[in-house]
Structure formats: C-alpha cells, structure tokens
C-alpha cells in the first residue's frame, strides 16, 4: 500500500516535470519525456516511448495526455495512468490560471491592447506554419487534398460542429481505402 502510494507520487511528480518543461504541442514533449522517463527513471526504453508516442498520435485527445496515460498505466495500472495524467496537466492549470487572471485585469490598458494586436499577427503566422507542417504529412494524394479543401471550405462558410467533419473524414478514409483495395 505504502509502496503503491510512493509509486503514484513519483508518477505524478515526474509527469509534472515533463509538463512544466514542455513548451508547445505534442511533438515538443518528446525530449522532456526521453530525459525524465527513459534516462532518469528508466521506466521505458527509447523504442517504447516512440511506440507510445505513435499510438498517442493516432488516438483522439491531446498527445501529451495520451502518452502520460500510457506510461502511467504500464507502471502502476489504471490509477497510475490517472496520476501520470494529472501530473502532466497540473503545471498548466497553475500557470495558465495565473496568466489568465492577470490578463483579465489588465486587458483594458491601451498598451496591453496594442501588444496583443501585434501578438495576434504573430499567431496567424504560427498557425500557418503548423498547417503547412501538417499538410506535408497528411495531404498525400488528390483524395486527401479533396478532404482538406472540403473541410476547410465548409468550416469557414458553415457553422457545423467540427465533430461532424471528424466523423465524416474518418468514414471517408475507410471507404476510399476499401474501394482501392477492391480495385486491385
């Protein structure tokens, strides 16, 4: 019992460290994960981390959370999965709450407003860069190009829940591949 608690505590702290040293999206987490989980704790090998990572990427949800759940589950079962996940989100909760509170209090100042006007321009470019990166990996033929254009156009001009697009695209992917398989 005591050992179990100790183990859960260690999972929580290790993943809090991973969370606090990760800047940005899923991919950014890999170096922190390798350092903390593979080199320091020796909970997994590099190959295992890559495997979890690949699975984290092809399941719904935030990649960092998926990977944390995987590692935690492997170490200490279901509770381990939950504790590792709580660890990875804990730093975000604290830091973002403080910043959000700060911004809400100072958002009316003209200097803060023009700072954010500049920042928004930067965000446009950052999103563009992210989309280009994703595009290179996902738009591999004319069918995937069609899916990209259809989803983009529909979500700019219509207000339908993105859930519908995600489900439709998954079904489209399966149908296209099945038809291809039958042809050959």
């Amino acid at each position: 019992m005591k050992d179990k608690l100790k183990q859960l505590g260690r999972l929580l702290i290790t993943f809090a460290v991973v969370g606090v040293t990760t800047f940005g999206g899923g991919y950014a987490m890999l170096p922190a994960l390798q350092r903390e989980v593979v080199e320091k704790r020796r909970w997994a090998t590099d190959e295992e981390v890559m495997d979890w990572y690949a699975i984290g990427q092809c399941t719904p949800g935030v990649i960092a959370v998926n990977t944390a759940t995987f590692v935690g589950q492997k170490q200490a079962g279901v509770l381990g999965g939950i504790f590792a996940t709580l660890g990875v989100v804990f730093p975000s909760l604290v830091i973002i709450t403080i910043i959000a509170a700060f911004i809400q209090n100072f958002a009316h100042l003209p200097a803060v407003q023009s700072a954010f006007a500049g920042i928004r321009v930067c965000v446009c470019v950052l999103i563009l860069n992210a989309v280009v990166k994703l595009w290179k990996k996902s738009v591999v033929d004319w069918k995937t190009l069609l899916i990209f254009i259809a989803v983009f156009a529909c979500s700019v001009f219509l207000s339908i829940s993105p859930v519908i697009y995600v489900l439709a695209a998954a079904i489209a992917g399966i149908i296209v591949k099945e038809l291809e398989a039958r042809k050959s």
Binding site: C58, A117, R120, V121, V123, C124, I127, L128, A130, V131, L134, W135, K137, S138, V139, T144, L145, I147, F148, I149, A150, V151, F152, S155, V156, P162, Y165, V166, A168, A169, A170, I171, A172, G173, I174, V176, K177, E178
Partner: peptide, 29 residues
C-alpha cells in the same frame, strides 16, 4: 480500419486548423 480512418482524419484535422487560422487572420489582418 483504424489505419484507413486516419488516412481521412489527418487532412481533415489540417483543414479544420487552417479554418481556425483563417478566423485569426480575419481578426488580425
């Protein structure tokens, strides 16, 4: 089936994010 679903999901995800980026462009530029 999982593999094939992701063949469709990836470009859709890119399209959705591009559309979100479009909203930021409308706001900022």
């Amino acid at each position: 089936f999982v593999d094939h679903a992701f063949y469709g999901l990836r470009p859709a995800s890119a399209g959705l994010i591009a559309a979100a980026g479009f909203s930021v462009v409308m706001l900022a530029l």
